[in-house]
Design a protein around this nucleic acid. Structure first.
Lengths: 188, 188
DNA sequence: GTCTATATGTCGATAGAC
DNA sequence: GTCTATCGACATATAGAC
């Protein structure tokens, strides 16, 4: 892992923990044992760094979707939850929640990076809901798009509010999300 | 409305729009036609101002709950949605979402103010879910607490992601939340 | 690629006049 | 209660040596 990747990784953790505006170059350079000027060599500025972090997160999502593509809907959903779990244990929130909640306090270019990522996540989750319902694994009323929206917001704000009320809340939310798409004996 | 209340109102709007760390005293003093020093006369510092904003929001919630106490569960829920709607149209998010997403970037005293407010909201919404189910207005599986968590996170992150994808998303979320607690002919 | 040194800006805060 | 004036801290950014 070269310096550039280390900077990206550190910046990502900080964005998910304290937000884009609340971290400084020093928060990255000190733990890495480098100087602030070194960060500027790898990235034109904080804005460019922020965009690079979001784009990398988006690329990771892309690869992840290929890995789970062949799995059944319930397993796909469980593995999707796992992504959020890995942030929960470190008191971090998700990238979408962090940037969108600070949306008008980050540069326009970062808003654009986030937009394409959010569109992508919403589409994938909508397709998962549709697929799950068509194959009988899931049952719910309303559009797959609306259901996907409730799921992704439950997870995003679930991480945020779990930092206030404790991690048990997030477990409850995952359980309830599943209950709300579980077919009952009366469904057909 | 005296100067102190004007400062409180302006600070609230800014917290919901750009977040606590992203607004400066100048963002408040210029529109109000006062100087930064005047803000310091009314509040010891930015931290005290932030706490006062959260406490006032909490007090408003308290009064609001008394006003709707006698209404039926569906109307209560609809009126609860209206609170979020009023933020949506101005591209603002909710207080809980704003502070909790920046939780480790705000002073500890503000985290404590937010905590008691979140506990309070969760309790009220849990009781509403329980009341609605007991009276047959709502139907859902799982605990009222978990269902309340899904509802409040849907609304909180709904406002956030609606700033990225557009306000239609929030309408979808409200619709889906209702669908997910609407009794069907098979329920009893 | 990484460093030292510094420029430049902004913010929160405070002292003291009115 | 509100002002003017100013301080000190910190952040991003850059120039130039190594």
């Amino acid at each position: 892992m070269d310096t550039r990747d280390k900077i990206l990784a550190a910046a990502k953790q900080l964005i998910l923990k304290v937000g884009y505006n609340a971290f400084s170059f020093t928060d990255i350079s000190v733990p890495l044992g480098i100087k602030n000027a070194a960060i500027h060599y790898h990235f034109h500025g904080k804005e460019a760094l922020g965009c690079a972090v979001i784009r990398k997160e988006h690329e990771n999502l892309f690869k992840w979707r290929e890995e789970v593509a062949a799995l059944d809907p319930w397993t796909k959903l469980d593995k999707f939850f796992t992504i959020y779990d890995s942030n929960l244990v470190h008191n971090r929130i998700c990238m979408v929640g962090s940037i969108s909640s600070d949306l008008y306090a980050v540069p326009k270019s970062m808003r654009e990076c986030l937009h394409s990522m959010v569109v992508d996540i919403s589409q994938w989750l909508t397709e998962l809901m549709e697929e799950g319902r068509n194959t009988g694994f899931f049952h719910f009323n309303g559009s797959a798009e609306s259901k996907a929206a409730v799921v992704v917001t439950g997870l995003a704000a679930g991480l945020q509010i779990s930092r206030v009320l404790g991690p048990e809340l997030f477990e409850q939310i995952k359980t309830q999300i599943k209950l709300d798409i579980t077919p009952t004996k009366d469904d057909n």
